[in-house]
């Protein structure tokens, strides 16, 4: 495996998000607040099965959970 993050169960987009967060956090105070607003995400999502809507869950939490699941396996 060429990519350590792939072995850790991250997708490329997740890897990008983590890298972007690190860059944003290392900015100066005044620039950082504006930049961190661009990284916010408050989506909710639901899975559907046979025409029925599942539970509404926070997307950020679900993505973290899936990462944890992949890395443990």
């Amino acid at each position: 495996m060429a990519f350590a993050w792939k072995a850790a169960g991250l997708t490329y987009n997740r890897y990008l998000a983590v890298a972007a967060r690190v860059v944003r956090r290392s900015l100066k105070e005044d620039k950082r607040i504006a930049a961190e607003r661009r990284g916010e995400m408050e989506l909710r999502f639901a899975k559907w099965e046979n025409g029925k809507q599942g539970e509404n869950r926070s997307l950020a939490k679900a993505n973290e959970a899936s990462v944890a699941e992949h890395s443990s396996s």
Binding site: N13, R14, L16, M41, L43, F45, L59, A62
Partner: peptide
């Protein structure tokens, strides 16, 4: 961030 989280899912 929205777009990439959706793409992930």
């Amino acid at each position: 961030a929205d777009a990439s989280a959706i793409a992930d899912q």
